[in-house]
Design a binder for these strands. Structure first.
Lengths: 133, 133
DNA sequence: CCATTAAGGACTATATGTATCTATAATAGC
DNA sequence: GCTATTATAGATACATATAGTCCTTAATGG
């Protein structure tokens, strides 16, 4: 089980936005160049982040993306779920009367992980960053 | 991000083995019937569990599968990793000098989840089971 | 020897992830 | 209003992973 590569791109793109001036939008071109991804592909991922309410986009000349909220209000979980979705890790395929005990265990574990990912904000990592990332 | 359906099958199959007599092997036919999966497909999953050292198989008449260790020594993590593998949740695609901070956060969260999954044994669920599962 | 059962290889189908290209819409600056 | 710039959306293509089938081989018990 792995996160998609898109999630990795998205997280790095978000950190780039954090490192940029908060008032000046960053274009997908610049972002794509830093991450070494194709602009058109990254563009789709950015759109997902927009729809998730994490960033805002402004089209047109001098347009681009910027954070919608403060960097200490955006968690890793926010970004990850914007890309990966919020589906549960394990869906029981059987139908044994009540709730599946196996499913419950896995969901507990999942919640544990999500709790940590929700507590980690972009600012936690950004403050330990050099110039690029 | 989701576990494959195969993981769900494997976990349920293991619990079935736990619920069965410890000396008498259970055939893939019976297991498949209970889980509602095709025997040939389930067979491949069982083989993975064998190779992971969780169960032993005996071919031939009256053959089948049985646990290799006690049920309180087999964790959810064992079963899950036997099917899903042990690859890390997020692999950083960039090469920024030192270790990627994003990756570190995700790995911490992953470890958190694995720790809980490792602490949950088959016996923890088995003792709260009715007849079937 | 024969019936039974697991293991393994080849193969197919479907879904998902990773893109690319083109067209459309919105915005800033002139 | 015109033009350049930039995000959005749709169609398409390709690779990989998942889910599943079928057939053959090997091992075991009676």
């Amino acid at each position: 089980m792995k996160y998609s590569q898109a999630t990795d791109y998205a997280l790095h793109a978000m950190l780039n936005l954090v490192a940029s001036a908060p008032d000046k939008p960053v274009g997908v071109q610049q972002l794509a160049e830093k991450l070494g991804v194709s602009p058109t592909y990254l563009s789709k991922l950015m759109t997902k982040l927009v729809k998730a309410g994490l960033i805002v986009s402004t089209p047109g000349a001098n347009g681009g993306y910027r954070l919608r909220k403060a960097q200490d209000e955006i968690s890793f979980l926010h970004v990850i779920q914007a890309i990966e979705g919020t589906a549960s890790l394990l869906e029981c395929s059987l139908d044994h009367g009540d709730e599946c005990l196996i499913q419950q265990v896995v969901r507990d574990a999942e919640r544990q992980m999500e709790q940590l990912l929700a507590s980690k904000k972009l600012s936690d990592v950004a403050k330990r960053l050099p110039a690029t990332d």
